[in-house]
Structure formats: structure tokens, C-alpha cells
Nucleic acid binder design. Structure first.
Lengths: 129, 129
DNA sequence: CCCACCTGGATGCGCGTGCATCTAACCATG
DNA sequence: CATGGTTAGATGCACGCGCATCCAGGTGGG
């Protein structure tokens, strides 16, 4: 069957993921003091432009609930988001992005886009490398 | 530009990678006592069907040299591969798969293929989910 | 109203990873 | 043959992740 195709696709995903992840970690970390997960959460916050529940973020970022909890904790410590109890369900926690968070995200966005463009535009090119 | 395309592609890679990785970890771990990295190394060994240098494996698996060194150490402890000094270059270490290693790989292969097929055949399907 | 069950999120823990560094072996040059 | 630079692989270290667990708050049945 096209088992070959499946395996090749998988290897391609592995390769792109590794390269992108590694580059993002370096670039975002060095230039903006953000990890890929931190950036991704900020990105979702900006995209939705409203307070989000932890669980909502869980669905969108591919992270376990515990990991997400810690990411938000780090972001809060860095004053990039603020946490607050959800008044309608006091177990819930909503996360709101701060102005500083928006600024950091805006600053980091071009860097992230550049890395992704590098990888995924070079995709066709890098196959011949 | 097709910045949209690049970002969407990236999210797709993230999603597939997360799902596949998670499933592989569970399935291979539970059924065969192997991590994804361990399996991948065994897979390369079988594919090449000869002793390989650590560095050669490094090029193929998307792992740092240190991570690979530990993976091989784990595999050796499990008697799935054996390490030996390269007589031509005594810094080098060649890795050879053992019979037990081949057996474990053969046993695990269908599991891995099933997971990958699940993810990448469902790819088109899951987009409409 | 009470109690057993469920759910959202936080935390302890172990593990695998990458980075920096170390050691040993190779190699070129004098 | 000695020496400085380079390369292969191993190891110390810090960190982020997932899993299991815990706790507070909600919810339904008696």
C-alpha cells in the first residue's frame, strides 16, 4: 500500500518540526526571552483578543493541562498575562494578556514568521540540499 | 503574502507531530517497552542492516548528539544493540543491532505503522472534524 | 441540607532533551 | 617525536514536558 507515503510523510513532519522548533527556541529565546510555548499562548491570546480559560488554551496549543498551567504561570511572573478567577465558575481561571504582553508578542511576531518562512519556503529548496 | 499558508502549515505540523508522538509514546511504550527515539534508532539500524556510527544515526534521527548517546546507552542496557569501538578510528563507536533488537523492532513495527496510518490517513478526515 | 461524584486547575515527580563541557583519540605542523 | 587544534562520543546540568495526584469548587440524588 502507500505505507511508504505514510512513513515518508511522518519523517517529513519530524524533520520540519525539529528544525522549526529548534530555530524558534533559539531565536525567540535569544531575541525576546520567550519559549515557543510562551509565544504560542501569547499568539492565541492576541488572535482571540479576549480573556481565555486555561482549558480553551489547552485545546489550541498542543500541551498537557499541567504544562499549560506552568506556561501561564511563567507568563504571569513575567507580567505578560494576568490571571483571574472566573466569577461564574470560581474553579475556572481566565487569562488576560497585558499591554506588555501585547508588546512582546508584537516584537516577537516578525522573528517567528521569519523562522517559519525560512523552514517552509525552504521546504522545496531544502529537499535538494 | 502566503504568510497565512506558512502559519497554517506550521500549525498542521504541530498538530500531527503532537498527536503522532503522543500516540507512539503510549503504544510503543505500553506494548513493547520502547520510546519513540529508541524505536527510530532500531528502525534505522534495520533499514541499513549494518553497524552504524553514532554520528551517522545523529544525521538521520532528529536528536542531539548527547540525546542519541543516551538512547544508545538505554538500548544497550536493554541488550537491543551492542556498542563497540571502531577499529579504524578508535574515538568512534559503532552500534550493532542484536537479534533481540531485531525481534523487538519487528514486533513493534506494526504498532508504529498502525499509529502513523491512523494519523496520516485520518489527516484529510480529521480536518473536517 | 447533606453527601458522593465530577471537573478545573495546581503541584510532586520522574524522565528525556539540548547545551556546555570534558576526555580521549586523531592529525597536521615543526 | 612533541604540540596545538580538531573531532567522536560521554557526562553534568538545567529545564520543560506528561502522568499521577491533590485540592477547591460545582452538581445531582436522597
Amino acid at each position: 500500500m502507500d505505507e511508504r507515503f505514510v512513513v515518508d510523510t511522518w519523517h517529513d513532519v519530524l524533520s520540519k518540526h525539529a528544525r522549526a522548533m529548534c530555530a524558534l527556541e533559539r531565536e525567540l529565546g535569544d531575541k525576546h526571552g520567550l519559549g515557543p510555548s510562551e509565544f504560542e499562548v501569547l499568539d492565541r491570546m492576541v488572535a482571540h483578543d479576549r480573556k481565555l480559560r486555561i482549558q480553551e488554551l489547552c485545546d489550541e496549543v498542543h500541551l498537557s493541562q499541567s504544562a499549560l498551567s506552568r506556561v501561564v504561570a511563567r507568563l504571569e511572573k513575567a507580567a505578560l498575562v494576568s490571571r483571574g478567577v472566573c466569577d461564574s465558575d470560581r474553579r475556572g481561571v481566565f487569562v488576560r494578556i497585558t499591554e506588555e504582553g501585547r508588546a512582546r508578542h508584537a516584537a516577537a511576531l516578525p522573528t517567528q514568521r521569519a523562522v517559519l518562512a525560512e523552514i517552509f519556503d525552504d521546504a522545496a529548496t531544502s529537499l535538494s540540499t
